[in-house]
Every structure is written in structure tokens, then in C-alpha cells.
Amino acid sequence: QPDICKDYKETGFCGFGDSCKFLHD
């Protein structure tokens, strides 16, 4: 199970976008 993207979880934004290896839940 992939890890949750910390940036996306906390801020709702991730610089990696769809290529981020972490989950954007």
C-alpha cells in the first residue's frame, strides 16, 4: 500500500502533481 502524500494531505497541493509516487487521497 502506497504512502499518503504528506504535502497533499496537509496543504491540498503537491508540486509533483499526478506523477507523485505517493497517494493523493
Rank of each mutant, 00 (worst) to 15 (best):
Y8G: 10
D25P: 09
G12K: 07
C5Y: 02
P2T: 15
I4W: 01
D7T: 09
D25F: 02
C20Q: 03
D7G: 10
K9R: 09
C14Y: 03
K21A: 08
K21F: 01
D7L: 03
K6L: 08
F13I: 11
C14I: 06
D3W: 14
L23I: 04
H24F: 00
F22Q: 06
P2E: 14
D7A: 13
L23H: 12
F16P: 09
K21M: 14
E10N: 10
D18L: 05
F22H: 04
C5W: 02
I4R: 10
G12L: 04
P2N: 14
K6R: 12
F22N: 10
E10A: 13
D25V: 09
Y8H: 09
F13A: 11
D3I: 04
T11H: 13
F13Y: 11
F16N: 15
P2W: 14
L23E: 06
F16R: 13
E10H: 00
H24M: 10
T11L: 09
K21Y: 03
C14L: 04
I4M: 15
I4K: 11
K21N: 02
H24L: 02
H24T: 01
D18H: 00
D7K: 03
D7S: 08
H24P: 01
S19H: 12
L23P: 09
G12N: 09
Y8F: 13
E10Y: 00
H24Y: 04
C5H: 00
C5T: 03
K6I: 01
F16L: 10
F16C: 04
Q1V: 15
K21R: 08
C20W: 00
H24I: 00
D3Y: 05
D25E: 09
Q1S: 07
Y8A: 12
Q1R: 02
G17T: 04
F13S: 11
Q1D: 14
K9G: 11
D18M: 15
S19I: 04
K6V: 14
K21H: 10
D7E: 13
E10K: 06
K21V: 02
L23V: 06
I4N: 06
K6E: 12
Y8R: 04
K21L: 04
H24D: 07
D25W: 00
T11S: 11
D25N: 00
D18T: 08
K9I: 13
D3H: 05
Q1M: 08
P2Y: 14
D25K: 02
P2R: 15
G17R: 06
G12D: 08
I4E: 11
G15Q: 14
Y8W: 12
G12Q: 08
C5S: 01
G12F: 05
F13E: 08
F13N: 13
E10R: 06
G17D: 10
P2M: 15
G17E: 09
F13M: 14
F13L: 09
S19K: 06
G15A: 09
C5M: 12
Q1N: 15
G17A: 07
D3A: 04
K21Q: 03
K6Y: 08
Q1C: 14
T11P: 06
C20A: 02
C5F: 01
I4Y: 11
C14D: 07
G17V: 01
F16G: 13
K9T: 11
K9C: 10
D7W: 03
C14K: 04
D25A: 08
C5I: 02
S19G: 14
G15P: 09
F16T: 10
D3P: 06
G15R: 12
D3M: 15
G17C: 01
G15L: 10
K9V: 13
P2V: 15
G15H: 05
G17W: 02
